[in-house]
Nucleic acid binder design. Structure first.
Lengths: 175, 175
DNA sequence: TCGATCCTGAACACTCATGTTCAGAATGCT
DNA sequence: AGCATTCTGAACATGAGTGTTCAGGATCGA
């Protein structure tokens, strides 16, 4: 997938991206006329994936916070792509789309606060950013093999909420 | 400073970097013969700055955790440069240096655990990464004007330790 | 004032990613 | 088999960034 290559190397050649995607550079160009178009498409897809993860987790009752974290961890690569690509900071359209997504997550966190699973002491925007950052860190460590995918949501949750019961037993430091 | 330009735009032209630094491209080349040399130098400086912030905070008794967070927030731009530059992930020398820095922070956090200011439930490596990530988020929001520099350490601390007393009064959500 | 040092703008060659075109191969559908 | 669609490899032009050189200007101390 183009996302993976671009996460590892944002300046990757179109030739490299094409070969990683298993197609020729010519074919790549037929789909995305220009490099910018490709980056845009990847970014839009990444945002869609993230948005779906969030809205999917928003449905249903009970521990929303746990669900949204668990849903975001697997899409960490997309998060990383968006996050590590400063070019999008200056693109108004993508920037607006991202603000929407932050808004959706903020709504979810608001519900989590009402549920009592998230402290209401911190500013909502901060909780949103902290969650994204922690999810990113978790998925990075999964990628590096330091963290088991199933343990990741627990770590993020425990950090974000101080719920010690969320810490995966495999990982705790009881000593 | 070259760091600032490269944080905002990792693929920035040497001409752009030079003009941002207030020198001619020729002069830049005389200092750093090649682009790679420049990036290396910036990375090494960034790491040195971070390392000094950490070791500086390690000295002295009392709330080490608060000191190290407060010391790292101002160097967030350097953190951002290192973090957003995947090319360093593959450079063995710089990678080793970064592991050293993580180790230094880990030692500091170990002291914080003994002090009782940091929960001992989470794995040490996770605390290290979470701290870096939260500091980065804080400094990004400072840059964007959403967060007052003096409030940042409190937010990071509160998130990392659930110490509600660390939350800046200006920022809390008492309602 | 002289000399040393550093900086500067301009010019140049060179490499490399990009974007385009096209004829032919591969694939799939009827 | 015939046809349409898609993919492919190769070639090419172009532009941009890079690295180099050099003659001249600026700065500063002796």
């Amino acid at each position: 997938m183009a996302t993976d290559v671009l996460v590892a190397e944002p300046g990757a050649t179109l030739a490299a991206i094409a070969s990683a995607a298993g197609v020729s550079r010519t074919t790549l160009h037929s789909h995305y006329p220009t490099r910018q178009a490709l980056l845009r498409a990847v970014a839009e897809r990444a945002m869609r994936v993230c948005a779906e993860a969030i809205s999917g987790a928003a449905e249903g009752g009970g521990d929303v916070l746990a669900r949204v974290v668990a849903a975001l961890v697997p899409v960490g690569a997309h998060l990383a792509f968006l996050w590590r690509n400063p070019s999008f900071d200056h693109d108004p359209e993508l920037g607006a789309r991202w603000l929407e997504i932050e808004g959706e997550l903020r709504d979810v966190l608001e519900v989590a606060r009402e549920e009592g699973s998230l402290s209401a002491d911190l500013p909502d925007w901060w909780s949103v950013h902290a969650l994204f950052a922690l999810v990113y860190v978790a998925s990075e460590n999964i990628f590096l093999g330091r963290l088991a995918p199933l343990d990741a949501p627990g770590l993020v949750l425990a950090t974000l909420t101080s719920r010690r019961d969320a810490i995966p037993a495999r990982i705790g430091r009881p000593r």
